[in-house]
């Protein structure tokens, strides 16, 4: 089931934006460095929450969809156990759909 209004359904393949706002100036982001530019699978939608990137600066914070996205450990670090995974909460504006057949 796709959560009402959610862009990604469970099982969708997604890519995390390869963006590094901390290199451009003061910011507060909740997308850890190690998943940026990486490909994962949406586990489920987690609802919508005021954007922490705005809350951190006392700005009006529109709600953003949040997802649990699963990544295989090994491609992230080039090491580790082949079965192991990591589950990360990522906001929708950090996610891009992965075209069919993309790596």
């Amino acid at each position: 089931m796709t959560e009402a209004g959610a862009a990604f359904a469970p099982g969708a393949r997604v890519r995390v934006r390869d963006d590094w706002p901390e290199e451009r100036g003061p910011c507060h982001i909740r997308t850890p460095h190690y998943v940026r530019g990486r490909t994962g699978t949406v586990e489920r939608a987690l609802g919508a929450f005021p954007n922490p990137e705005d809350l951190a600066f006392g700005r009006p914070a529109p709600r953003r969809r949040l997802y649990h996205v699963r990544f295989d450990q090994r491609p992230l670090w080039n090491e580790g156990h082949p079965r192991d995974t990591v589950l990360v909460e990522i906001f929708e504006h950090w996610l891009e759909p992965l075209a069919e057949g993309s790596p």
């Binding site: 003061p26 507060h28 922490p52 809350l55 951190a56 600066f57």
Partner: peptide, 11 residues
Amino acid sequence: TVDELRRGIES
């Protein structure tokens, strides 16, 4: 907010 707390720590 807790987000401001975090931003302050990260600074």
